[in-house]
């Protein structure tokens, strides 16, 4: 314990002069470590859930031990061969946790990585799991607005500072751009439709619709309150009349194009329904990880007339190469960008 404490203390001292102007990477502002001290190098990473998987993949794909959920067949094509056939272990925490302590021990990970919500439940379960297994556990606040810091802190932790800084630069640019436009002007009213019916969405404060607020939009469902996900009725939508409808569900997008009932919405009449890519990870959600940084850039442009246009083919190639390690093929690009 002693070296650990000393290091934290030293880090704190080192960070002191900069605290006012914004925290530095080594301050570990977002990361809570549990269990025994880390032993470098960290070669084997067990990811606790989907956002953690994306984070581990973009930083150090070769150190991942497995996936928390099955990659779909088309998604497999978008990720590096080294991770395509990794086993699926399920999730470590939350309501449908399936990873047993024994599985965890037998995998001998150097670190359990958990990016996402940080609250009393997750803190206590992180502490319990690390105590039970004797494996270091890093719990990282996964909010979109903290993407830069997440990448830098984990880059430091995993010893891939250089790569992390390149990714963080993209994140910084994407977030700064959003912040610039968020400041002024009318906020367009956005509905994020989930599932095939489109009648499910996130309330205010839901991590699943976080990107709307960050991009400077107003989530219409905030009128129904704060919380997580909810179902809504079509008549609620009629009274909200969102300016823009976003979705990642191809079935629902098809429905808006053919169903006369959905045609009653101004957004549909004005062709303001957008199907965002979900391969290999969603642009808006699914999972709520750093995969949303490109969706944020897209949404900022969609919501704010002043933003300079981007060549989306080039941008997509750039983001996918930078974060996912390989550029999509021309055919794949076609599939992704078809409905944007």
């Amino acid at each position: 314990m002693m070296p650990m404490r000393r290091r934290t203390f030293l880090a704190f001292l080192a960070a002191l002069p900069f605290l006012k102007g914004g925290a530095k990477a080594q301050s570990n502002r977002l990361t809570r470590l549990f269990g025994p001290p880390l032993r470098s190098p960290i070669r084997r990473i067990f990811v606790a859930g989907p956002p953690s998987a994306v984070m581990a993949y973009v930083l150090t794909p070769e150190r991942m031990l497995g996936w928390p959920t099955q990659l779909s067949a088309p998604a497999r094509e978008f990720v590096l061969p080294v991770v395509r056939d990794l086993p699926v272990f399920g999730r470590l925490v939350g309501s449908s946790a399936t990873v047993s302590v024994e599985t965890l021990l037998s995998l001998k990970p150097d670190l359990i990585l958990d990016v996402g919500t940080v609250d009393a439940t997750y803190l206590s379960s992180a502490e319990r799991i690390s105590q039970q297994t004797g494996i270091p556990y890093a719990l990282v606040d996964g909010r979109l607005t903290e993407s830069v810091q997440q990448l830098l802190e984990l880059g430091e932790l995993l010893g891939v500072q250089e790569r992390a800084q390149r990714l963080a630069a993209y994140a910084r640019a994407s977030l700064a751009e959003a912040a610039r436009f968020r400041a002024g002007g009318r906020r367009p009213r956005v509905y994020l439709a989930r599932t095939a019916t489109g009648l499910e969405t996130g309330l205010e404060g839901s991590i699943n619709v976080e990107v709307i607020e960050v991009a400077g939009g107003a989530n219409v469902a905030a009128a129904a309150g704060r919380g997580g996900l909810t179902r809504v009725s079509f008549e609620q939508l009629l009274s909200w009349q969102p300016d823009i409808i976003l979705t990642q569900d191809a079935q629902f997008f098809q429905l808006t194009q053919t169903d006369p009932l959905w045609g009653r919405l101004r957004a549909v009449q004005n062709k303001q329904v957008y199907l965002l890519p979900s391969l290999p990870f969603g642009w808006l959600d699914g999972p709520p990880g750093v995969n949303r940084l490109i969706g944020l850039r897209w949404l900022v442009r969609r919501l704010n007339a002043g933003a300079e246009p981007i060549d989306w083919r080039a941008e997509t190639r750039l983001f996918y190469r930078l974060f996912y390690g390989q550029e999509p093929s021309a055919a794949q690009l076609e599939v992704i960008l078809k409905t944007l």
Binding site: P50, P68, T69, V88, P287
Partner: peptide, 9 residues
Amino acid sequence: IKVLADPSV
């Protein structure tokens, strides 16, 4: 199926 399903979608 719930275990296999994508937890956010």
